[in-house]
């Protein structure tokens, strides 16, 4: 299996890795090599959204992304999203409404919502907006509190 050097930026810091196999998933690079364990490993098949990170600002499933695909890109994980204005607002909204139970889906949801707000802002109709979050599963909350957090964020974005 061929391995290559990999350069990327993670949470604002440059990262250089010597040999990263072409088959290695970004999820495993982040969790295994960089010890960024806040990104959760769920189904590894793109079915749960727990591993969502931002790649150049776009919400991305790190389990279905090869690390080498992210070469030279800016990666933001849950550990770094608080320094992003949008990400900070999302975290604050989750805290304000208590949109967390077991917490396993939470980092993925925070990242997906941050990416979506960056991409769509308050422009899309709320139903469509929520459909975009359909790839992130939560088994605990019934989504009620997450929807309340999303609604508050959209209202805030619209008033800015």
């Amino acid at each position: 299996m061929s391995a290559h050097p990999l350069r990327l930026r993670v949470n604002g810091r440059p990262v250089e890795l010597a040999d990263v196999p072409v088959t290695e998933r970004l999820l495993d690079t982040l969790r295994g090599r960089l010890d960024l364990k806040g990104t959760k490993e769920g189904c590894r098949t793109g079915g749960c959204g727990a591993c969502t990170v931002l790649v150049d600002g776009r919400s991305t499933l790190s389990c279905l992304t090869l690390a080498q695909e992210a070469a030279e890109a800016e990666i933001t994980t849950i550990e770094g999203v608080g320094s992003d204005a949008e990400g900070h607002r999302v975290q604050a909204a989750f805290e304000a409404v208590g949109a967390v139970q077991c917490g396993y889906c939470t980092p993925g949801f925070v990242m997906a919502l941050t990416g979506l707000l960056k991409e769509r802002g308050a422009a899309a109709p709320f139903g469509e907006f929520l459909e975009e979050l359909g790839g992130n599963l939560c088994r605990c909350t019934g989504y009620g509190a997450i929807v309340r957090a999303a609604a508050a964020l959209r209202a805030e974005a619209a008033s800015r």
Partner: peptide, 15 residues
């Protein structure tokens, strides 16, 4: 546990 979970600082058995 709210703030820690939102910040991704909680460690599960998988971690």
């Amino acid at each position: 546990d709210l703030a820690e979970k939102i910040a991704g600082r909680v460690r599960y058995a998988t971690d």
